[in-house]
Nucleic acid binder design. Structure first.
Ligand SMILES: [Mn+2]
Ligand SMILES: [Mn+2]
Ligand SMILES: [Mn+2]
Ligand SMILES: [Mn+2]
Lengths: 221, 221
DNA sequence: ATATTTTTTTAGTCTTGTCTAAATTTTATT
DNA sequence: AATAAAATTTAGACAAGACTAAAAAAATAT
């Protein structure tokens, strides 16, 4: 049996590993989980003992195949519950994360598969993140951060990198969400701030914002 | 903060208290929770410390007003989740309990109130048990166990006392559920077994079964 | 009223997951 | 290459929640 705490470690390691590429450090995990490095070391020994990670002292960790499958399954549950909360229970996208953190640990294969069907097999969660399928396959779509976009091209918002409540509320305030069209009018060399046309109005965004919005270029024809 | 384990104790004490009336014994709790009496004693001290129960050594426990409110809130969540699982996710009434045992501990006021609305404010769970409202009020309906029913009268099944998977499957097998009409044809003095007309067919039920079915008499006119 | 049985509590131990402080290893700097 | 700094691990402690074995209290039987 895998515990709630172990599940949280696996999920965190998965996210860090897919961002960094190489082995994940003790401190990086500690920071994400908001715990002390020594607690992380203790847990890493347990996860290695259960063959969920490969752990070399002082060298960091990587998920094993089994660890990865477990992590992806938790992420699948997290994202499906987020869809449920937004689509069926009138939650806004900045309210779902904390509840999904709890719901992702409910253990029932039937529950999650029926939920998936009930929601009509959604491909993405409310933040634009892809939902792994029953077998752990993740369908990745091409996307770039808005800060990398080119002047005079038009894009569609397909997701967010920062999905903190504060950032999402900023987007709400400016009526920006998944599917919103964004036309790049200008980019300031000095601070990389961008002038954008959104909802027929022009606005300026600093780099700390454009860095956290994922967009997809419109198909040329 | 109240822990998952504490919630389970409160819920158990509530059920025992409402069945027995008087103070609840350590052993009774231990048996329900499937733990040892010594573990129960430990927990009772903690709950008393938090003013959720009144506990007198060797004399058993009772819930305080606050303890009762907490217990009822957990029962509300449990039963609402059971309705969700049956009505929306194609669970049958013998499959829902274990999952609801997990879901009842999810902490989010908004979640449970929205779920309630999404389900159209159901009054009873799939086993015929009443769902407490937002304020902890429980609407109790008059009902008797089938074994107490009178010959030649007609009743409607409104609930079950034993909601174990085994018993519910027995009922399914004979196409008996909430709302099923039951006409009492005869009652054997010797073993109290009853001859009933259900779904246009006659059948005999032993007392151990009729003791676990709740019915309501049809209104005479 | 005494003795026996049952119930409940206490004492001491264990596991999980966390912490602080100290020791060790690795990495960066001179 | 030696030293300083940063990262990581180890050692020892603690709280929650459970357990076993023993002691104490309450209930029952003689
Ligand atoms: Mn989330
Ligand atoms: Mn998300
Ligand atoms: Mn139930
Ligand atoms: Mn029920």
């Amino acid at each position: 049996m895998i515990t709630l705490s172990e599940e949280n470690y696996l999920k965190t390691i998965y996210h860090l590993e897919s961002r960094e590429g190489n082995a994940v450090s003790t401190n990086a995990i500690a920071e994400k989980i908001e715990t002390k490095a020594s607690s992380v070391t203790d847990m890493l020994k347990k996860l290695a003992e259960k063959n969920l990670i490969t752990y070399i002292k002082y060298k960091g960790v990587n998920l094993t195949k089994e660890g990865k499958l477990t992590a992806v399954d938790i992420i699948r549950k997290h994202r499906l519950w987020e869809v449920f909360l937004v689509d069926k229970l009138n939650f806004s996208w900045d309210e779902v994360h904390d509840v999904a953190e709890q719901l992702e640990h409910i253990k029932s294969q039937k529950l999650i598969n029926e939920l998936d069907a009930f929601l009509k097999f959604p491909s993405h969660d409310p933040h634009g993140d892809p939902i792994p399928d029953k077998n752990g396959q993740i369908q990745r779509t091409a996307k770039i951060v808005l800060s990398m976009a080119q002047i005079d091209k038009t894009y569609t918002c397909v997701g967010v990198l920062d999905s903190s409540s504060e950032f999402l509320k900023y987007l709400d305030k400016h009526k920006i969400g998944i599917g919103t069209e964004i036309e790049v009018k200008d980019k300031e060399e000095f601070d990389q701030s961008m002038t954008l046309k959104i909802n027929k109005k022009e606005m300026v965004m600093s780099k700390s914002i454009t860095n956290n919005i994922y967009v997809k270029a419109h198909n040329e024809h």
